[in-house]
Design a protein around this nucleic acid. Structure first.
Length: 265
DNA sequence: CTCGGAGCCTGTCTGC
DNA sequence: TGCAGACAGGCTCCGA
């Protein structure tokens, strides 16, 4: 489910709810999730809530270890401060504070909790698209090094972090680049379009609180609205908004790719 | 080093 | 209605 814009949305919503507050304990409700018992039992103050790649990260005071939540496909974080008991279906962990709790739901149980002593330890290998080093020149150099098809390349988190299956299709459509084009055959101009539209599409998705299909909900259980802007993702057979040709679906590395064969070269 | 495929899970949807 | 199969937004591991 969540790609960069969805994680960024959840982080921004939790900042005012958690920062400066005291996390009293963590309850794990799924055998697959493990954390050191001391981490679960020791109360500590939340110093910051941040996004690192697609990870949701809690930073604490007193040099305490950082805690990262990776939502993977179907993870959701939801704020609960009602007197009534929360919904327990697919509830995997509860982060209990004095004024409410952050609930971690995860239908498919791919999500993970990770403890790390530093942000460096958690930081993904790839560059964040909002990092100043993410330039057309940098991306062109990365592309020159591989003959991999450009769409699976953009999905790789060890080069660029944050893009998932939805936004890769949308970026390549907007940049008018064929998803099967080997990276090292792309022109500088095409790479520059990919770079520019990556930033633009992610910014716009964040403004609209992300994309919702079925699983993504933000901290209030509400849904993002960016799906209304998707030009090709999930639209096989529909008319390309630009030329009217039927949008195609192909499979690359067992993932669906949607594109317009007439517009994207 | 690169690349592609299997696997992790549980649910919904489609077609017979 | 029942049932099998496809499919789902992420990522890691393994072998070629």
């Amino acid at each position: 489910m969540p790609e960069l814009p969805e994680v960024e949305t959840v982080v921004r919503q939790f900042v005012p709810l958690l920062v400066g507050r005291r996390l009293t304990r963590i309850e794990l409700l799924d055998d697959k999730l493990t954390l050191p018992p001391a981490i679960c039992k020791t109360p500590r103050r939340v110093e910051a809530v941040e996004r690192l790649g697609k990870q949701f990260v809690l930073r604490f005071g007193d040099g305490a270890p950082l805690l990262a939540v990776h939502l993977r496909m179907t993870g959701r974080l939801k704020w609960h401060n009602q007197p009534s008991a929360p919904d327990t279906a697919h509830l995997r962990a509860r982060f209990i504070l004095e004024h409410g709790e952050m609930l971690f739901y995860d239908l498919r149980r791919f999500g993970t909790l990770v403890v790390a002593s530093s942000a460096e330890e958690l930081a993904p290998k790839g560059l964040d698209p909002f990092d100043a080093r993410f330039t057309p020149k940098w991306l062109f150099e990365q592309c020159q090094r591989t003959s991999q098809a450009v769409k699976p390349f953009l999905l790789r988190q060890d080069r660029l972090v944050g893009l998932g299956n939805i936004y890769c299709s949308e970026i390549l459509y907007t940049a008018r680049v064929d998803p099967e084009r080997p990276c090292n055959t792309l022109t500088r101009a095409a790479v520059a379009r990919i770079q520019r539209h990556t930033i633009e599409i992610l910014e716009r998705a964040i403004e609209h609180c992300g994309t919702t299909f079925s699983d993504f909900q933000d901290s209030r259980g509400e849904i993002g609205s960016y799906q209304a802007f998707l030009a090709v993702y999930g639209r096989e057979g529909e008319a390309c908004p630009s030329c009217g040709a039927a949008i195609r679906r192909i499979v690359q590395q067992q993932r669906s790719t949607f594109y317009c064969a007439r517009c994207q070269r």
